[in-house]
């Protein structure tokens, strides 16, 4: 059956348009690069933001695209940090090697534990992810001979990145390094979510019943994205270890898992840049609040979380949708009530 050429054209146009690089995306990257020159004194905090953005991006892959709520995502972050740290301390001190090694180790662990998030309800997933992170924290704490235990892992000496760029005191090369990693990972993720695979992930999140009736086998898709997400988180952890030359046992603590959830939720899930936006807002907020009330940062995170939920995440983080959809659709969104 041949469709009228018009519909085909309409369809092709719409699909390419939804895949197009948007103006605000470009602006974001331009600003990120410009910051190297414009904010030379803020590069350390910018590095921190970038690492947090990668970590949140990794969570977005499973939460925003596959709908898996994780309470222990920091397991992969921490594992990556330790992997990179130990590698640099004892064997290879070149950062990119460490980055890849950390991604590999975390990915391996993500693959192994992905089978735990396949089955059961949200609650079971919450529990298993939480449990796995606690387990790992306990292991890191007990295996002091390897990890430094409660004192943290120190003695990380790094050679220049790829043998060319040395970590400088101002954190300039560190920031560029982290930014390049973020850019590469975002590019890969972007490619992925606009592929048939990405579409099937969103389908599994939106309606698992129907997905099965279309012939989607959930298992392999979820295992794959969970593993990739673990790789991302592990790389974020590695960057932290490398740019700070230290791994604190805190990288596996529960509050990190909660924080990364908060970061992603502030920025909005399911459009890849939520992590970046969230990381910027979160870090600035934390810096500002810790000047105002140094000790009770936790109180404010708590308050933000509660406010965010009660006011409604969708309402607060609708802006990406506004940027993406055409005005007509937007009007329709507000008018129509949602079925079910």
């Amino acid at each position: 059956m041949t469709a009228p050429v018009e519909t085909q054209k309409l369809a092709r146009d719409w699909i390419s348009r939804s895949n197009r690089v948007r103006l605000w995306e470009i602006a974001l990257w331009v600003i990120a690069v410009a910051a190297i020159f414009l904010l030379p004194s803020k590069l350390l905090i910018l590095t921190e933001i970038t690492i947090l953005a990668i970590f949140a991006l990794s969570l977005d892959l499973i939460l925003g695209y596959a709908g898996i709520v994780s309470l222990g995502h920091t397991a992969f972050f921490g594992l990556g940090a330790y992997a990179a740290g130990i590698l640099a301390r004892d064997y290879v001190s070149e950062p990119v090697t460490g980055l890849i090694f950390a991604g590999f180790i975390s990915g391996l662990f993500g693959f192994a534990t992905s089978f735990l998030v396949l089955r059961g309800s949200d609650l079971t997933r919450l529990m298993t992810t939480f449990g796995v992170a606690m387990l790992l924290a306990e292991v890191a704490n007990q295996a002091a001979w390897l990890t430094g235990g409660a004192d943290g892992l120190s003695g990380i000496m790094l050679t220049p990145i790829l043998g060319l760029f040395e970590f400088d005191l101002f954190g300039r090369n560190g920031y560029v390094y982290a930014l390049v990693v973020l850019a590469v990972l975002t590019f890969i993720a972007r490619r992925l979510v606009h592929s048939p695979y990405g579409l099937s992930l969103k389908a599994l999140k939106l309606n698992p019943r129907r997905s099965a009736m279309i012939g989607i086998s959930a298992t392999r898709r979820i295992v794959a994205i969970y593993t990739l997400s673990a790789v991302y988180a592990g790389m974020a952890g590695a960057l932290l270890a490398q740019t700070t030359s230290f791994v604190s046992p805190d990288v596996l603590a529960f509050h990190r898992s909660a924080e990364v959830l908060l970061v992603l939720v502030i920025g909005g899930t399911g459009y890849l840049y939520g992590g970046v936006v969230g990381a910027i807002i979160f870090t600035l907020l934390r810096d500002w609040l810790s000047v105002v009330t140094p000790q009770y940062w936790m109180f404010w995170i708590g308050l933000i979380l509660i406010a965010l939920v009660l006011i409604g995440r969708e309402r607060l983080t609708r802006w990406p949708a506004l940027l993406n959809r055409k005005a007509t659709t937007r009007a329709a969104t507000q008018l129509a009530e949602e079925p079910r």
């Binding site: 509050h255 708590g302 965010l308």
Partner: peptide, 10 residues
């Protein structure tokens, strides 16, 4: 989850 973590932190 977010809400109740918020309560815990506060």
């Amino acid at each position: 989850v977010l809400f109740s973590i918020g309560i815990v932190f506060m």
